[in-house]
Every structure is written in C-alpha cells, then in structure tokens.
C-alpha cells in the first residue's frame, strides 16, 4: 500500500483496531463473533439443501459454502462498512488532515480479518479432505491479491459516493440479497441444468456478475483443487486491477471537497 505513507501506517493500524474493537466492544469472544454469521449460514444452507431438499450433491458441501462465503463476506462486508466509513468518521475528516483513503481501507481491512480467519481454517481442512490437486493452492495468493484489489477499489468508490449521494448505502444493501443468489456460492455451475443447452446463459452468469469469477477462482484453488479456467484467472486480474484503479481515481477526484460535504 504505497499510497499510505509510512508515518500514517500507525494511524491505519489504529483505525483498524478501532473498527474491530468498536464492533465487539467489551466482548471476550471478540473476533470469534465475526465467524458466527458465516457458520450459521453454512449450517442453515447445508440443512436446507442436503437434508430437507436434497438437491445438492457436492461432497463436503459445508466446506464448499464456507469457501464461497469467505470471499462473499469480505466483499459485501467491506462494501457496506466502507460505504458508511467516511460519513461515520465525519468528525475526523472535517477536523484533521490526513490521507482520507485510510478510512475506507481500514474498514475493509477490519472485514478482511474475518475472511483471513475463515481462509486460515479452510486451508488445513481442505488440505486434509480435498480430492483434487493440492498444488493449485499455490495460486491462492494471486486470487487473494486480485480480490483485495477489487474490494479496495469498491470500498474507496462507495465511501466517497455515499458522502455525496447519501442513498448509496441503501442501494448497495438492497442489491446484496439478489446478488448473493446470482453468485455461485450455494450451488455450482457444474450441476447447472441449463449448462449444456444454454451456454450463453452460463457465460452471462459467469462474467456479467463480476463477483462470480472471483468466487469460482477461490473455490477452484481452495476447495476443488483444480486449475481455474484461464479466462477466469485473466478476468480476476484485469477486473481487480481496473476496479482498483477506477475506485482510487474516483476517490482522489471526489475527496477534495469531502470536508465541505460531510
């Protein structure tokens, strides 16, 4: 993060700490709490899709869900928290001069900690249970870097947008649920009934929703143990870089008048 000067790293670390601590004030379970929501979701969906309504035939289905959720909670958690971060820290932004990107990025990192813990749990479990090649896990750092770039770009963009257009956070929140079901977290495209007859539909679902290739890449490397499609890898690198560059450019352009608009 070269755009955070060394003397501001301290502030960055402190804001992350403040974000994390502030959310679970005084709770001794601390960071464990952040894992409860994905774990409950995993349990509920497993129950519904494998026991009650037996439609999924993925072995180790709970791990499959958790892999997708690691990315999803990082993405959407960061988007919602970052969207309100500048408005929530208005007193700081209006009264102190410091690089403003620190605020949304600290919000993102605080969400990233949860995802990191999930991935840290998934790696040994998948290494133990996975059928495919364990070597593809070497690609995981690339997938993580691309994901971070994507999320950082979105976090930066949404944080400034929400200052100028206060309904941004509500629009984002409204889109999250339908977006979740359009992203292959609970299901896999492999078992898609339309996959053979309507390939264009599959491609549309895969590439029009920018979250999908990232989810596929992390599922392939972390859960299936298979090489992601080249197109998916190219997609996540290009989109990650583009969204980051675009988000950062928008942030730089709009942050000039932050102190007046807040």
């Amino acid at each position: 993060m070269s755009f955070i000067a060394p003397h501001n790293r301290q502030l960055f670390a402190n804001l992350v700490r403040r974000e994390v601590r502030g959310r679970y004030k005084g709770s001794w379970l601390g960071i464990i709490w952040t894992l409860i929501t994905p774990l409950v979701m995993m349990g509920a969906y497993t129950l519904v899709f494998t026991v009650v309504w037996q439609v999924v035939s993925i072995t180790h289905y709970p791990l499959f869900i958790l892999t997708g959720l690691a990315f999803w909670t990082f993405l959407t958690g960061s988007m919602t928290v970052a969207a309100t971060s500048l408005v929530g820290n208005a007193d700081l932004v209006k009264k102190v001069a410091f690089p403003r990107q620190i605020v949304p990025l600290a919000a993102m990192v605080s969400q990233g900690i949860t995802a990191a813990v999930m991935v840290a749990i998934l790696i040994p479990l998948n290494l133990w249970l996975m059928d495919g090649s364990r070597l593809v896990m070497l690609l995981l750092p690339l997938v993580i870097v691309a994901s971070c770039a994507l999320v950082a770009g979105l976090a930066l963009a949404l944080s400034v947008l929400n200052v100028f257009f206060r309904d941004t956070e509500h629009i984002v929140n409204a889109l999250l649920l339908p977006w979740f079901f359009l992203t292959p977290i609970l299901y896999s495209f492999d078992s898609f009934p339309l996959a053979t007859s309507h390939e264009w539909l599959l491609d549309l679902l895969k590439y029009a929703n920018f979250a999908t290739p990232f989810v596929l890449a992390i599922q392939d490397t972390l859960f299936w143990g298979r090489m992601p499609e080249t197109s998916v890898l190219i997609y996540i690198v290009v989109v990650g870089a583009a969204v980051f560059a675009g988000g950062y450019a928008l942030f730089r352009k709009m942050q000039r008048d932050l102190a007046v608009e807040l």
């Binding site: 403040r18 502030g22 004030k25 005084g26 007193d91 009264k95």
Partner: peptide, 10 residues
Amino acid sequence: LELGSGFHPD
C-alpha cells in the same frame, strides 16, 4: 480544530 476529535467512546 476540535479537541479529542476521533476519540472512540468505548
């Protein structure tokens, strides 16, 4: 510009 700006109450 303001004393204690950025203090976290908790």
